[in-house]
Simulated scan of single mutants.
Amino acid sequence: MSRDADYLQSILHHDIPLTRDMGLTVLDWHEQQLRLRLPLEANINHKSTMFGGSLYCGAVLAGWGWLHLRLKEEGIDDGHIVIQEGQISYPLPVTEDATAICPAPDAAVWKKFLTMYRRYGRARLTLNTRIVNAASDEDAVRFTGQYVLHR
């Protein structure tokens, strides 16, 4: 695990204790893409699949973690990240350990977000996360979240 991944996992486990109970781990932060691991055993439901609430939480946290690490890279540490809105779909059941993946938004979108924050002390960013079963690359969950950064 990279230093950034270790750092983010310690932040998540300290500031959001639920992440420890979920068994959530940070797999990696590479080329501005964040991957989190969600174990089935800690998040199983009565149908022997992953609980929808755990999947929602994992998707939100992948976006939150992505934004947290990118802001750190930009030297921005004076803001608070909150999820303002989220839309999720569950096209496939999660039947094994899962990976939540949050890639970078378009570079122009990121630049506009930074400009807005620096100018007004508040900015919104939409991030897309997907969750896949560990043995597949097929989307089991698709999430779009609007995150707000404010001073």
Rank of each mutant, 00 (worst) to 15 (best):
Q84T: 01
V26E: 06
R122M: 03
G63I: 11
Q87H: 14
A107R: 05
V82L: 05
L36M: 07
I83H: 01
E31F: 04
S54L: 07
V132E: 15
T99A: 12
Y147C: 00
T126S: 03
S54A: 14
L38N: 03
Y90S: 07
A104S: 06
F143P: 00
Q146C: 04
Y147K: 01
T115I: 06
V94L: 14
V141H: 12
L114K: 05
G79Y: 05
E73V: 04
S2I: 09
T25R: 13
R124L: 01
G79F: 09
L127R: 01
T129P: 00
L24M: 14
G145E: 04
L24K: 03
I83F: 03
V132I: 11
L55Q: 12
A135R: 10
S54K: 05
D77N: 13
K72Q: 11
H46C: 02
R118P: 00
L92Y: 13
E73P: 01
L69T: 10
Q33S: 13
H80T: 12
D21V: 03
M1Y: 12
R35E: 13
N43W: 12
G145M: 01
L12G: 10
R119H: 12
L8H: 08
D4K: 15
E73A: 13
S136M: 04
Y120W: 02
S10N: 13
E96T: 09
N43S: 08
D106N: 10
W29I: 08
P39D: 11
P103E: 13
A123W: 00
L92F: 10
G63N: 09
A140K: 07
P39T: 13
L61T: 05
V141I: 14
I88Q: 08
T115R: 07
K72R: 15
I81W: 01
P39F: 15
A5G: 12
G63H: 07
L12S: 02
R70K: 12
N43Y: 07
L127K: 01
S54N: 09
L67S: 04
A100V: 06
T25K: 11
I16D: 04
K72L: 13
V148I: 12
S136E: 14
P93V: 15
I101T: 05
G23H: 14
Q33N: 08
D139P: 06
V26W: 10
H68R: 14
A123Q: 03
I101F: 10
S48K: 14
K112E: 02
G53T: 07
G145Y: 03
I16N: 06
L18N: 03
W110A: 02
I81N: 01
L34T: 11
F143I: 02
L61I: 12
H150T: 12
G65M: 05
N133A: 15
L27C: 09
A100M: 08
R130I: 13
L71A: 03
P93L: 14
M50Q: 08
D137T: 15
G23N: 12
P93F: 15
T144F: 01
S89D: 06
F113Q: 00
W29C: 11
T144N: 10
R124Q: 02
G75P: 09
G75R: 10
G23V: 07
D28K: 15
G65H: 11
R3D: 08
T95Y: 03
Y90A: 11
L149W: 05
I11Q: 11
